[in-house]
Nucleic acid binder design. Structure first.
Lengths: 241, 241
DNA sequence: GAAATAGTGTCTGTGAGACAATATGTC
DNA sequence: GACATATTGTCTCACAGACACTATTTC
């Protein structure tokens, strides 16, 4: 049934990272400028090939994360997003890429990592709208990553990963609003997160530089799974006839 | 920064299929007996290497599906589950496997496909309990696949993919109970699915061979996304203190 | 009629969404 | 005090869950 001497084809394996963060209440993704062909000069996700044949894929993802974005694993969520391996997505040959999604708290401008000509945070809207042109199929990967993040906010405490060690409830609301792209009622949001057992725990009171009543501070609670889940309003009320 | 002449390592790319179906109200997974080393004689997921360097991964998954299980794509859901590529998972070398999840309606016993020594449906409990020993990391892949299916039943109309072209509401309830592994109240279930716009549409009345009032028949409705979602009872009430 | 399965009605508790009202800070 | 933001309270509606009840079939 198989021909003599048939051997399975080999592929190059790469990892790509969708690193999301919040800047000025807007969701941003980390992009680098490619220094080599193909797509030289175009914006792309940080990533690269496995370093050697025995490197674990997850390890490779973490390696790229620190190489290209100076990000350590502190308070950082990193999960597999999927495989992108269309033949022809890379002119160099058959390259199959494993995409990872990382969520990071507010970060300093990453002034060019090790092997990227330029690096920077780009507003997610510019990517999703097609305003920016990205290398390979990276726009689709980012689209999938954002959607994954949106869904994860509903049932996991992931949102706290966008914040620093302590945060106010308003900070947390900003996260939800930015990722979901919709406004939420502060009063109802307040009640909801307080009622959700183990989501956040008190951590003193903030001294606010700005005007208004100072907010209480919280830190991430013990639970990673939210019950009941946060509900995303724009579910599909438009589904009605 | 890179050594002279450094070239990225290559890997072998495989696809593995988690094919789930319902038999006698129990969730089953399709397993084959391996005919070759490694793990010769052990049970494993159907799957195999890419056929040639230009084969699309999804195409390869469909190919394996028909090769190993005689299943065509009719009313069949097939989606990417994830990548499993730990170094050392396959003694033959660096093999990275893309796992797919397929949901199939009740099917005839698949009497050995093309290149598998034996094939058969195994109850999912035997796999999850560790009662059966599987090749490679296939137990973990199946565990992930079942969990994915459970979650998908909540918000998608996937459950109808387990049924034939027409089905009764009780049939549909059986699907939910089997996949979730918990009993549901028939009365509430009935109301719920009827109220969920576009989930199921009437399709005549069944003539039952058994006793009792004949049930109405339905077929899958136009909506693939359920709103409001079906709620899985055992969410995490045990999370309470 | 008895048994069995299908389908409906009703009540109750929880939680989402709207929004008024109150608290506590800065200027 | 004026203003701004934080926090609490209240009302209403939708829906999950429990479960009594009615309907329609076979025997």
């Amino acid at each position: 049934m198989t021909q003599d001497q048939w051997v399975p084809p080999v592929v190059l394996l790469a990892v790509d990272l969708v690193i999301l963060t919040l800047r000025q209440s807007h969701l941003h993704v980390l992009l680098v400028e490619r220094g080599i062909e193909p797509y030289r000069g175009a914006l792309a996700l940080p990533g690269g090939f496995l370093q050697h044949a025995e490197e674990d894929i997850t390890v490779a993802a973490h390696r790229e994360l620190s190489e290209e974005a100076d990000l350590d694993l502190e308070t950082l969520s990193l999960e597999q997003l999927g495989v992108y391996g269309d033949p022809g997505r890379d002119p160099r040959g058959r390259v199959v890429s494993v995409a990872y999604l990382a969520i990071a708290p507010r970060l300093p401008e990453p002034t060019a990592g090790t092997d990227a000509a330029a690096a920077g945070w780009q507003p997610i809207e510019r990517v999703l709208s097609g305003d920016l042109t990205l290398a390979f199929d990276h726009q689709r990967i980012i689209t999938d990553g954002v959607e994954r993040a949106r869904v994860k906010l509903e049932r996991s405490s992931l949102a706290t990963a966008f914040c620093g060690p302590t945060f106010t409830i308003t900070d947390l609301q900003d996260v939800y609003e930015a990722v979901w792209g919709i406004p939420l009622d502060p009063r109802n949001f307040y009640r909801k997160v307080q009622k959700t057992e183990g989501f956040i725990v008190p951590a003193g009171t903030a001294r606010k530089a700005t005007t208004g009543r100072p907010a209480r501070l919280f830190r991430a609670g013990p639970c990673t799974v939210l019950y009941p889940p946060m509900v995303r309003p724009t579910e599909s009320p438009s589904e009605k006839e």
